[in-house]
Each structure stands twice: as C-alpha cells, then as structure tokens.
C-alpha cells in the first residue's frame, strides 16, 4: 500500500475537549500561538477530522461524549495517532470519582501518547505531539508494508488498571485485563470501533 511520505513532516491536528475544566484546552491553543508556535514543526490545527493525523483529546469521557470521540477517531484517515492531554484524559484525574465521569480516553479509543499534568504545560503538550510523530512514522511504515492494522506501539486498552506514573499502565491483575486495541478497523465492521455518526443528521420539517 502506498502512503504519503510527508505526513510526519506536516501533521495536522484536531482537538476535542472531552470533559475537562478547559485548562488543558487553552494550553493546547496556546501551543499554536507565537510563544510556543508548533507551526514550526509543520503542525496545523484543523477542524475537520478527515484532514487530521493527530487527535488531541483533553478531559475524560462521559456517557454523552463517547459517540463524539469515537466518531472523530473513526473519521480520521489511517495512519493516525491519539494523544491524551492532561491527567483527566489519562485517568479521570481529580474528577475520577464524579458520577458522570467514566475515566480516561483509553476506555474508548486506543491512546498512543499520554501527557500528564493539571493543566498540562505547553512544553509537555509539544513534547507529546512530537512523540506522537514517531508513532505516526512507525504506523505509516507498517501500513506501507501492507499490515492491515497499523497499530504498532502503545495502543492497548486496559479495562482495569493503574497508572504507575512513568507513562505505563499496569493491569490490575496479571494476565487478564489487557485488551489489545488492535481490532481490525475495516470501514464496515459493526463490532469494531466504528459507530454511526449521530451528530451530523439533518432533519427537515415540513410546514
């Protein structure tokens, strides 16, 4: 399979705020502005999931935003990288005990890079995105070799587990809780991660 060679030279990002205090969101935006200026890495912020290579998620997931997060993820073309920004996106953070919070983004979609912090600092976010570029290159190479699923590193989903603070998740009990997120992402697999777009319906009302 042929892939574009230039993706890692100019990755486009899309940002979605899950259920955060918006501290991390404004730091993501601050990265784009002159003081931090991620555009020097060729990174451009886009609002269209189909243009995006890197998905930056801030905040944790709740019942209502699961379909939105999944939908954005599924609309992004392969290869793609997910960066969870801030402790809420990583594990639920300070809000993990809230009744309307399910947990980190990795409960819903595979995450490649975790950026800790409350709020995550712009330097850390940039570092995370640059790490994401490495993952993107790996996935791209895998895709070029014809490996159907380009998920090659980091992208595992843990149902139960704890964050050990060094950037790795530890399963709660050995051997039983690690679920590889490497489900085939063919476009019409109803059991995979793809969901029916719920928010783009247009209704017409006749008067």
């Amino acid at each position: 399979m042929k892939t574009m060679a230039s993706i890692t030279k100019s990755p486009w990002i899309i940002h979605y705020d899950g259920s955060s205090c918006n501290g991390c969101d404004i730091e993501v935006l601050a990265c784009l502005t002159p003081m931090y200026d991620v555009e020097r890495f060729g990174i451009i912020n886009t609002g269209n999931p189909k243009h995006a290579d890197i998905f930056l998620v801030t905040g944790s997931v709740n019942e209502q935003n699961i379909p939105v997060v999944k939908q954005i993820y599924n609309q992004m073309p392969n290869p793609k990288v997910v960066v969870a920004i801030g402790i809420c996106a990583t594990s639920g953070g300070i809000f993990r005990d809230c009744y309307n919070i399910i947990g980190g983004i990795d409960k819903v979609i595979p995450v490649d890079v975790y950026v800790p912090g409350c709020a995550a600092r712009p330097e850390a976010i940039i570092d995370g995105v640059v790490k994401g570029l490495g993952v993107l290159a790996e996935k791209q190479a895998a895709l070029a070799k014809g490996i159907a699923d380009p998920t090659v590193s980091g992208a595992y989903r843990y149902e139960n587990g704890t964050y050990d603070g060094d950037g790795t998740f530890l399963p709660e009990e050995e051997g039983d809780t690690v679920i590889a997120a490497a489900e085939p992402q063919s476009t019409d697999d109803e059991n995979g991660l793809r969901v029916k777009p719920a928010m783009t319906e247009e209704q017409e009302v006749d008067d």
Binding site: H15, Y16, D17, N22, D25, I26, L29, G47, P49, N65, V68, I72, M199, T200, E201, E202, Q203, E204, V205, D206, D207
Partner: peptide, 19 residues
C-alpha cells in the same frame, strides 16, 4: 413559507474550543 431545516451546531466545531 420557506423550508425549515434544523442544523446541529457543535459539539465539535472549529470556533468552539469547548463542546
């Protein structure tokens, strides 16, 4: 009468940093 359409705005939208 003009045709009525309902357009959903958000939660993910370029001008909205928040949903």
């Amino acid at each position: 009468m003009a045709k009525r359409t309902i357009i959903p705005f958000g939660p993910q939208h370029p001008v909205l940093p928040e949903p």
